[in-house]
């Protein structure tokens, strides 16, 4: 069951061990860095097998939200539940089994400088104690072929362009066939052709392996190509949640401007001046 667009906030219910087909549940998540409140009681469900695209103005906390899902950051308040497991109950070592089920593409790829491309991609497999070196090499090659970097296995990350580094990051995220992939701006800085390759790959991962994906992107073309559902983060809460069709047909001026990339209205009113969803109901057609 897919939710309809959220128009009003509901009180944050306690997270149960399992509720429907919701794979990941965030309830009342709050996070501040010093005096800067980034997440302000955010609620979000991510459903098994879907591709959820997170959009929103820069600096609104989309990456912070992604890091909460994998337990790299812990909420100041609220809860994050991954497939029935409350992450805040787990310490760094106990989080290992959860993290092994997740692939994460970092915004800047975060490749290990000291390892070659092949060793970077093989890293999750070696950590998973795959002993057979032939199997490791085969799976590494397959992952690199998916991102069209098959001939660059021996290179060091320092010798790759930004786009290639990002694609190696994707190969590393998918090589161990995780159940969920978190992409932090997978197509930022890439040319349109490679962007299309990555978009197709995200769709293919869903079709072939039924992988759940959460994608942060500012590229609206990519949004409509890959999304089953879209959530817009603003002022620390989910401002909009719905299907691509619902987003396209929304008459909300902020959403319209965001989709079309127009600045007049947003410049005049300022993103920060708009109240979150519960004060400004959106009525998609």
């Amino acid at each position: 069951m897919k939710p309809s667009p959220s128009h009003s906030p509901s009180p944050a219910p306690a997270v149960s061990a399992s509720s429907g087909d919701s794979f990941i549940q965030l309830r009342g998540v709050e996070k501040a860095f010093g005096t800067q409140r980034v997440l302000r009681g955010l609620d979000l469900d991510i459903y098994r097998g879907e591709t959820l695209v997170l959009i929103g103005p820069s600096g609104e906390g989309k990456s912070v939200l992604l890091k909460h899902i994998i337990g790299l950051l812990r909420p100041d308040a609220g809860s994050v539940c991954f497939d029935g497991t409350l992450l805040e109950d787990l310490d760094e070592r106990q989080l290992r089994p959860v993290r092994r089920r997740i692939g994460y593409l970092f915004q800047n790829a975060a490749l290990f400088d000291s390892l070659s491309v092949a060793d970077n991609v093989a890293f999750p497999l070696r950590e998973a104690r795959v002993k057979n070196e032939d199997e490791i090499q085969q799976r590494v090659q397959e992952a690199l072929e998916i991102v069209e970097l098959g001939e660059h296995a021996a290179k060091m990350p320092i010798n790759l362009s930004g786009g290639m580094r990002k694609r190696v990051g994707i190969a590393r995220a998918i090589v161990d066939q995780p159940e969920i992939l978190l992409y932090d701006e997978p197509t930022a800085g890439l040319d349109p052709i490679v962007t299309d390759v990555i978009d197709h790959m995200i769709r293919r991962m869903k079709k072939r392996f039924g992988i759940t994906s959460v994608v942060i992107t500012h590229d609206m073309g990519s949004v409509f190509k890959v999304a089953d559902r879209i959530a817009m983060l603003m002022k620390g809460v989910i401002y909009f949640e719905g299907t691509p069709k619902e987003l396209r047909s929304s008459r909300d001026p902020l959403l319209r401007n965001f989709i079309t990339g127009r600045s007049e209205m947003t410049m005049r009113s300022g993103w920060g001046d708009r109240a979150p969803a519960h004060d400004n109901p959106i009525h998609p057609d």
């Binding site: 089994p97 993290r99 994460y104 400088d113 950590e127």
Partner: peptide
């Protein structure tokens, strides 16, 4: 320190490596 600021340590953690 360089690994920390370039998110390589977060990448380790994300792959379940302490």
């Amino acid at each position: 320190g360089t690994m920390k600021v370039s998110e390589q340590i977060d990448a380790l953690r994300a792959m379940g490596v302490h």
